[in-house]
Design a protein around this nucleic acid. Structure first.
Lengths: 191, 191
DNA sequence: TCCTTTTGTCAACGATTGTTGACTAATTAA
DNA sequence: TTAATTAGTCAACAATCGTTGACAAAAGGA
């Protein structure tokens, strides 16, 4: 068998099918309500294969929920455009072409799954906070990061998990303008 | 037996114990992970009694998650203080003396429990939106309500469910000032 | 006291869960 | 073709879930 150039073997295709089914279900109903049998049914394979290829439901979830913030370097952006830049970045991450839906997966399961909750914590404490610390004023980085996180996660929670009609109805332009303004104030304004 | 003046009979005390245990567990780990047997263990009674007194786990959850927004009449408040007024109101509802923890219960279970999700939707679409429509400008009430909801729910989600350290660390004064400012702009600012 | 109602105990049910291991079928290397 | 590796199938496991019904204990009224 080829060592590096695998020609998308049969096993790889079922692996991909399982992962896709898992992401769809995890995003739609969370970790607890998603069963291995449901995943297998959607992927049209045997439930035992889910375990064989991913070890356990937990490991499959971990694989399905990976995502990379890829935060832009805020210290190089125009200081007056940090807010809009951040909001644009998150929106394209959540709704853009390469969106993989990992954010809804994490958000929906974070309330009852410790793995998901910790992943979210790591992201916002380990990436958003440092980025704001570099970009914003010298003090109160933790406060600013907390406020920014509450607004961004709240937007995602209402729009993708709860699907609150007034939030789903917001246009991207409105979000960029209004939420961008808020983030801008949190990130750089005086406290 | 007395018809109206029940002297806190034995049954009432166990009913209360069950409800208290249920609220504690529902708030801490959500609907799915909370088992009838866990509730019974904390209430120190038999699991069968949980069903006998509340019919089913679903009905018990509905009882444990009732709460009343009791929104103040924003049209009578100083227009320039709507933001702070709203944030103060929610904070005292969530952390004040009479806080019953129903908000964390709803938020934590909303991601995987339709009953909880619908209850949250009803609250914010049926109470917050009308209140803002009365108080704010004549147009764009839905947009304003969506933005306000995203910030308020995001704050609660980060602070009580996810327990993001930077958000937990925010003082009430900071929240009232900063989030109040944001809500004020969403509620009354031009869009 | 006796009788009725209330309150609590216990064991078990059927369903569903993640996971396993033995087995067959298909694919590949020789 | 033959042998070996890989992929997929199937039935079953142990555990846990919400829920039920039969029964015992306690309390209250007569």
């Amino acid at each position: 068998m080829d060592q590096e150039l695998k020609k998308s073997g049969k096993a790889d295709r079922t692996r991909a099918a399982i992962l896709a089914a898992a992401q769809k279900l995890f995003a739609g109903q969370g970790y607890e309500l998603t069963t291995v049998r449901d995943i297998a049914a959607i992927a049209d394979i045997d439930p035992a294969l889910v375990i064989r290829y991913f070890g356990s439901k937990d490991e499959l979830f971990a694989r399905a929920a990976v995502f990379n913030l890829k935060l832009p370097d805020l210290s190089r952006a125009e200081r007056s455009e940090i807010g809009e830049t951040l909001v644009r970045h998150f929106l394209s991450l959540w709704e853009g072409e390469n969106a993989n839906g990992a954010m809804p997966i994490l958000l929906r399961s974070a309330a009852s799954n410790e793995t998901a909750a910790n992943k979210l914590k790591d992201i916002f404490a380990g990436q958003v906070l440092p980025a704001l610390a570099r970009a914003g004023g010298r003090s109160g980085a933790a406060e600013r990061a907390g406020l920014v996180s509450s607004q961004l996660l709240g937007l995602a929670f209402c729009r993708y998990v709860l699907r609150l009609p007034p939030v789903v109805g917001l246009s991207q332009e409105t979000i960029i303008r209004e939420v961008g303004h808020t983030i801008q104030r949190y990130a750089t304004g005086d406290m």
